[in-house]
Design a protein around this nucleic acid. Structure first.
Length: 570
RNA sequence: GAUCUCGUAGCUCAGCUGGUAGAGCAAUACACUUUUAAUGUAUGGGCCCUGGGUUCGAGCCCCAGCGGGAUCACCA
């Protein structure tokens, strides 16, 4: 296949060739042993110390017989100084003049050995005595420059290019790397917190026969050997509860979930939820546990509990505010949902302009009121408690009110971040709730849950009282890294698949009797389908091709009109 | 899925009431042994997303499509 190369790509490929001609392998196999990193060198500067570091060559500044460049390694960057006399101590300066000045390009991986010194301008640098090409970069990276004040010029900002080519984004945009490092710190802090309680990290199936534990449209696939449909999990909740049935005190999992629904700046088809289940606890305990965990995460990953987000500052210091859903609705609408009938709730929704329809049960109506009037107001971390029973089919009924459940959601910045229950462990009640979901489904609620008979069987063997909590990891990372879109916290967010030009079928050209050495050039000259050749007049093809040959100084025989007329173009 | 909006050089972007395509950086060449957004001089580089249409003439106007982004809808 013919690749259309830009001038710069041609230059780099030529350089690659010239390096090989000089006996320098641009992609060497051998280990390159480094003894230092940029960051550590800058932190522990020692004049004259010999160091070996490796990284990407960036921002090269050639000044005649000496050159400066930045070397970016995994921990940061350091300036290198390559002087002709240092790198070529003898008479022969050709390595500097030819290789360093003309065959290296920004983006190349190199290793350097040299001694530390400080320039007149006071910058710690490596005076290079030995340079090794480790990998040639054949495509030019976007050139982003930063001045002393930290102003960035020509930033690589196109979201499409950044997400499709995250590898480039990471090289060129320093902050992106920081976001992902923070993401891992957040996850590690959560893991440490749970482990400190002795809870067990587990793995449960991603490929499931029944997509349970949540209400969402699943991705469907097929298992050939069993010849059954399978689903990518939408949640792992029911599996973790089975493990509590099995006798573990506490289990947790960072669960990659998949939902076949819309994509926007807070939804990606695959996303990560941390779920934890702890036996003998209730949702009050879980609230204390959750806020302590989040404060711990902030302290460990960010070193502070006061976190800027957009134009707000969110304070993660415990305790968080706690408010029942009933009180939240009173607070923002003045309406008390206590004891109201479905009809009364329906009418109230209509009166405040909420779109309602016949498929909505009581729980759904209350959820709509909360979503429309309350949710967005909770900027600082707030636990909303005691949801209507219809909305929470896996949650235990409230100990004081059978119409409510022992459930809380943690709201931050007007959005739900975590969700927790005193888990329903009464198998008879659970079966009834699933049946209610079925009838909701029949009324047209396509979010209602599937029944998982094996899960019910597990409950019948007995599950201790348990509290469970799930927290959206991506959204937590967004909050803590001040990113408004989920794409910024996922290395490879889902994108519509990219279409690559497949190029013409060169075998067709060969079959037509076109000289092989000409085919590539004929395509590049614009005749990228046989149809185009067929439709063009042979005389004009003849002229164009020879003009192309002249322009590109091709070292092949000129095209003859007779050759063109002899082509079998069908 | 709906509406709005964007697609021009490797990157970031200009492009007037429609008149044969521009800058900065990057590249190439030369000069320059402590520069740092290095500098100076010169040079090359474009399927203006794709396909139709209107027009004497389209990067620009119209239609359709493709790919982004934003808003909305949907979304435990």
């Amino acid at each position: 296949m013919i690749q259309n190369l830009s001038d710069e790509e041609v230059v780099r490929r030529n350089a690659l060739q010239k390096l090989r001609e000089k006996g320098i392998e641009p992609f060497p196999a051998a280990e390159y042993v480094v003894n230092n990193y940029s960051k550590d060198i800058l932190a522990n500067y020692e004049e004259g110390k010999e160091v070996v570091v490796a990284g990407r060559l960036m921002n090269m500044r050639v000044m005649g017989k000496a050159s400066f460049a930045d070397l970016h390694d995994s921990k940061g960057k350091i300036q290198i100084y390559i002087a002709s006399d240092n790198i070529c101590p003898g008479e022969d300066k050709s390595y500097y003049n030819e290789v360093v000045r003309h065959l290296l390009h920004f983006g190349d991986f190199i290793g350097v050995k040299g001694t530390l010194f400080t320039t007149r301008m006071g910058e710690i640098s490596i005076q290079v005595s030995e340079l090794t090409v480790l990998a040639k970069s054949l495509k030019p990276l976007p050139v982003v420059k930063t001045d002393k004040e930290g102003n960035i010029y020509d930033a690589f900002t196109d979201p499409e290019l950044r997400y499709r080519m995250r590898y480039v984004d990471l090289v060129v945009n320093e902050k992106v790397k920081e976001t992902f490092i923070t993401r891992t710190k957040i996850v590690n802090a959560m893991r440490d917190f749970f482990n400190s309680y002795g809870y067990l990290e587990v793995d449960t199936p991603v490929l499931q026969a029944i997509p349970g534990g949540a209400s969402a449209r699943p991705f469907i696939t097929h298992h050939n050997a069993l010849d059954v449909p399978m689903y990518l999990r939408i949640a792992n909740e029911l599996y973790l509860k089975r493990l509590i049935v099995g006798g573990f005190e506490g289990v947790y999992e960072f669960s990659r979930n998949f939902r076949n629904e819309g994509m926007d700046r807070t939804h990606n088809p695959e996303f990560t939820v941390m779920e934890i289940y702890v036996a003998y606890k209730d949702y009050n305990w879980m609230m204390d546990f959750t806020e302590a965990m989040i404060q711990h995460v902030c302290e460990k990953a960010l070193g502070t509990t006061s976190v800027p987000f957009g134009d707000k500052v969110i304070d993660f210091k415990t305790p968080f505010r706690r408010l029942s859903m009933t009180d939240a609705i009173i607070e923002y609408t003045g309406f008390d949902i206590t004891g109201k009938s479905e009809k009364e709730l329906f009418d109230f929704c209509k009166s405040i302009g909420i779109d309602v329809n016949e498929s909505m049960g009581k729980g759904k109506l209350i959820d709509e009121i909360f979503g429309a009037k309350c949710e967005g107001n909770f900027i600082q971390p707030t636990f909303i408690t005691d949801y209507p029973v219809e909305m929470s089919p896996l949650c235990k009924r409230h100990r004081n009110n059978p119409e409510l459940t022992e459930r809380f959601e943690l709201m931050i910045n007007g959005k739900e971040l975590a969700n927790a229950y005193s888990e329903l462990n009464d198998p008879i009640d659970q079966r009834g709730r699933f049946e209610e979901q079925m009838s909701l489904q029949e009324r047209g609620d396509d979010e209602a849950m599937f029944i998982d008979q094996d899960f019910l069987r597990a409950l019948e063997y007995g599950m201790p009282p348990t509290s469970g909590m799930g927290i959206g990891v991506d959204r937590l990372v967004m909050l803590l890294t001040n990113n408004a879109t989920i794409q910024e916290v996922l290395f490879f967010p889902q994108m519509r698949p990219e279409k690559f030009a497949t190029g013409p079928d060169l075998k067709e050209y060969e079959a037509a009797g076109i000289a092989p050495e000409w085919i590539e050039h004929i395509v590049k000259a614009g005749y990228d389908t046989l149809d185009k050749l067929r439709e063009a007049k042979p005389t004009s093809v003849h002229q164009n091709l020879n003009a192309y040959r002249k322009k590109n100084k091709l070292d092949i025989p000129a095209m003859q009109l007779a050759d063109i007329e002899s082509w079998k173009l069908g």
